[in-house]
């Protein structure tokens, strides 16, 4: 049911001799949040700018909602909403005036829609103030409202959490999830905030030096895929380390294993650093934890131990290198 809303085909963009985007092919589907990850200067903004009509691609094609960007520009762009880098608006006008001006360009006359998006981004109290008096986060919020006002099928946000407070980030996450999962909008978010991306995205693409290196499912989606219908995933259960026990004797991993019933000992393995590892479904995880606690074994944390996004990111981008 989910179609490709954004299709990039062998996109290349060169600035002088530097290839900012190099033969990039990817697609973003309706109903998903696609994370666009990469170090500074990787080519994220360049890609997004090509999609939004700021830059002209050297080679390749861009298709939005089935329309070719170069040949059916109006129709293609009517499907897109977004923010590129910082949201910049007309400082001499109020937030609402800015929204009205933008909505007018989309042939939108409905004032209620503007009120609606303003409420959605939590700006209803100060929308009538001049934009030049807004803080960065407030501009982000109005920028988001502007990106949403014409109900785009493709929403592209370049580092949207930039400048948002924790509340704002949380709301944004909920908002994007709602838009994607309930309303079927295709959302593309660029960022280098790995933890944020892991919580927010369904799929991430990692780009470095203009090349797309890997595309992976993450979060719920990854879990669903790895465990199939049963939902079996690898977990790592760490015991309370001795130094944290304030002098009391704590059981070792061997003792903890020994405390489990016979049948469980084949499922669970001892891992380095006072920890147990096991591949379990959620039901089994609950049972195991219950048993360990009942046996009086103190735990420090339970981890979902697949390779984290961070591992993936650093292995793919060859982390720790200087900028290209």
């Amino acid at each position: 049911m989910s179609e490709d809303i954004l299709k990039l085909n062998h996109l290349t963009k060169q600035f002088g001799r530097r290839k900012a985007v190099d033969d990039l092919t990817l697609s973003v589907r309706s109903g998903e949040i696609f994370g666009f990850l990469g170090p500074n200067g990787a080519g994220k903004t360049t890609t997004i700018k090509m999609v939004m009509g700021f830059l002209f691609e050297d080679t390749g094609h861009i298709e939005i909602g089935g329309y070719d960007l170069r040949h059916q520009y109006g129709k293609a762009m009517a499907q897109v909403g977004g923010i590129v880098e910082n949201p910049e608006m007309y400082g001499q006008f109020s937030g609402r005036q800015n929204l009205e001006m933008y909505a007018r360009l989309h042939g939108l006359k409905d004032r209620r829609r503007i009120d609606e998006v303003v409420r959605l981004v939590g700006m209803d109290k100060r929308i009538n103030e001049k934009v030049k008096r807004y803080s960065l986060g407030m501009k982000q919020r109005v920028g988001l409202a502007q990106a949403l006002v014409h109900r785009p099928r493709l929403l592209i946000l370049d580092e949207p959490t930039n400048g948002l407070d924790p509340d704002g980030i949380h709301q944004l996450r909920d908002l994007l999830k709602n838009l994607a999962h309930q309303e079927g909008v295709a959302v593309m978010v660029s960022s280098h905030q790995l933890a944020e991306m892991q919580m927010m995205c369904d799929r991430v693409g990692i780009i470095n030096q203009g090349r797309l290196l890997d595309v992976r499912l993450v979060g719920q989606a990854a879990a669903g895929e790895a465990g199939g219908a049963a939902g079996i995933r690898p977990y790592r259960i760490e015991l309370l380390p001795p130094e944290a026990a304030r002098g009391q004797a704590v059981p070792t991993a061997q003792e903890a294993l020994a405390a489990l019933p016979e049948g469980w000992r084949n499922l669970v393995h001892i891992a380095k650093g006072q920890a147990l590892e096991a591949e379990l479904d959620p039901q089994q995880l609950q049972e195991l934890l219950g048993m360990l606690l009942a046996a009086g074994i103190p735990l420090s944390q339970v981890l979902y131990s697949s390779r984290s996004l961070e591992d993936l990111y650093f292995s793919v981008t060859g982390g720790g290198q200087a900028l290209a």
Partner: peptide, 14 residues
């Protein structure tokens, strides 16, 4: 310079 051109470019107008 101020970047306000962005909202014009993003709009579906040639």
């Amino acid at each position: 310079e101020t970047g306000s051109i962005k909202s014009l470019i993003i709009s579906p107008t040639r």
